[in-house]
Design a protein around this nucleic acid. Sequence first.
DNA 1: CTGATTACGATTTTT
DNA 2: TCGTAATCAG
Length: 798
Amino acid sequence: MTTDLLSGLNPQQREAVSAGEGPVLVLAGPGSGKTRVLTHRIAYLIREMGISPKHIVAVTFTNKAAAEMRTRADKILGGYTDGLQIGTFHSICARLLRIEADHLDGYNRDYTIYDTDDQIKVMKEALTELNVDTKKFSPSRVLFAVSSAKNELISPAEYPSIARDYFGEIVGRAYPIYQDRMRRNNAMDFDDLLMQTVILLRDNEEVRFKYQRRYEHILVDEFQDTNTAQYRLVKMLAAPQYNVFVVGDEDQSIYAFRGADYRNVAQFRKDYPEAHVVLLEQNYRSTQIVLDVARSIIDKNKHRTPKRLFTEKEGGALVAIHEAYSEGEEGEWVVDKIRSMIRFNGYSYKDFAVMYRINAQSRALEDAFKATGVPYRLVGGVAFYQRREIKDIVAYLKVINYPGDTVSLNRIFNVPGRGIGDKTVQAFHSWVDARGKGYEEAFKALAKGELIPISGRAGKSLVEFARMIINLREMAFPSDMPSFADGSTAQTPLTVIYDEIMASTGYIGYLTEISDTPEQVTERMENLKALRGLIDSKKDLALNEFLADVSLSTDADTNTTGGDPESANNVVTLLTLHAAKGLEYPVVFITGLEDGLLPHSRSFTDADEMAEERRLLYVGITRAEQHLFVSYAFRRSLYGESMPSIPSRFLADIPAELTEGAPTKIKGMADRQAYREMTRWDSDSDDGDSFARRSSSDNGSSSSGRSKIIYFDSAAGRGSSNSSGGSISKRTPPPPPAHPPSKYKVGMHVYSPKWGEGIIIDVRRSGGDEELSIRFSSAGTKTLMASFATLRIVNQGE
DNA sequence: CTGATTACGATTTTT
DNA sequence: TCGTAATCAG
Ligand SMILES: Nc1ncnc2c1ncn2[C@@H]1O[C@H](COP(=O)(O)OP(=O)(O)OP(=O)(O)O)[C@@H](O)[C@H]1O
């Protein structure tokens, strides 16, 4: 039943998939089937070349991509994939390090992975120890430098020699101390996972040979986003056969900020001059228009080798550019568009993705989705594992796993509150240090009541805490159970451990204490329930494995609103441009195309970073299969203050004939100054001829375009000082003359930012104002005062 | 040591 | 604007 692996592929793709042994480099633009080729290559190796799946390792960029690739490979091969390893560099390294922990200097198999917050705490301690002013040299800045060093495989000892200034000198001093503290906590950061693996493979021949044999074939997706450490790892594992198959696109390199260097692609060609290079030129994803727009953006980058890319999807919809008044209206516009395309063009929610440059932008978008009940899912971001309640419980798990994890320990000493303050904690730590026998032993001694280092109430609490930890640990790893030959011990099921933590800490009660609203309590309970569900789904993992899994997953935070739960998968996707890499959607919205946002202001001063911003937009655009919508807001609030914004300079690079909508007028408007002159809408003048008004509406749709939206600003709106001046009734201004109160009629469809869409069911005069009864589709019936309600008329009703 | 109040600072992007 | 770190009273 040899379904031909090559049948669904074009000649170039076939060439790549069926290449012989040795290095292969597939270089191609977006949507040309690189990932597909990689997946088929795995199948080809197994089925046609007779390679055992366990001798193959494929590296992807996210866990999600890994899961997807595994599913696809399974499908092609009909499940014959036992032992096939697919994962991110980080997860592959984490596993390797756990298995080879005995060869590591100062770590054991129960090592934990610290997230950014944990790292900051450790770095702060290190800087304090050095008497460095953490105001002047923030832990996160120093960490960034350390991280960059690790990505370049620069050790603490080597760092000082590359330090060029005072800051570098500080880093040079902090790095070794930080590293030492990490080791004492049996903790690694993300970069350590890579660097320690490289060091281990480099220095330990036996281990190196083992993995070179094990990973006979190595495949890397998104190769342009590897950093020095990762590439080094690839090279070491690929030797001595050099069966290394990498796919990438330099124009899609968007992770330079974490050390990725697309020049690794060029380096690959130098390192393996014999490499079989394959170029793919047909794009199967997007329309010609989308590709043209993408090209117009990326062409402006210097020092790139243009790639040929064609599609059979000629023509296509023009890219619609929309100017919204604010981020709030930008969100409303997106939602309106989505709803109308679903209603009239037969799309469903899952066909849409809304993208943005920074996570903070998601909020306004979410508000719009919530208000209308359009179901959505927010991808990535900080989300789940950063939540306080989750971090608390995970910290308990970490301490049970390894009591010497001081960062986790410090977190839970007084959570829930048990009267163990900072002083007590410090005293405890120095006591443990002085004894020099480690934390587990210290807790045991304390629990037995042998020694009490601290007097009084706090001391008593500490003893109780110690007992609890010892009991939990004993419960998790019963000592009367036999140890396995490999040194690991039998372990109580994870769910039982979880339940036991909840019970012995009384965490639920604590939760109610720390929450200010009942809703918050429910939300937090929900989160804990989700955590337990997650634990349950991985219940056969060892505790240390589970913890590693948790640390390495940035898993999409699923957040569905409005829609019926049955169609949980049919939702609109909200995600950052970074998170969008590798994905594709029929309809794509890219929001916030403003100078300062995209390109981000932090990139203004650096040409390389500006080029990366451009690539980021390029990646976003090329996610679109059929429709591309681009928007920017006229006014955007940052730090709570609404600030004027300028449309992205990138917009001017898109040829006018490929676009429709608002900013056709800024095409070719290279002179920013002149542009600014035209857009002095922040002045008080109400001359009705500003750029804002002229360039608003895009197409005939009544729901989009500022000029067609009718607003009734609330009386308490901006500008009126509410201190000494006049009574409330005095401050109620007459409604705008153009739109007298009688505007509202029974049967009208209106939209309120707060309640969503509704129908007016009653209008009553009341003094100089009107009382409106509105039945909202999702919020029930409300009665609002016309002058105080911010309503938009959706349509006049019949 | 706790709890509350205030002050400040932060925003790219992610494993 | 919002969340957390620092500060202070009890
Ligand atoms: N030979 C082919 N025939 C039909 N469809 C194809 C072919 N090759 C690829 N595709 C389709 O094209 C789309 C893009 O493929 P894929 O995601 O592998 O491209 P890619 O090069 O990895 O893209 P990107 O670099 O943007 O992530 C997918 O939907 C895929 O199924």
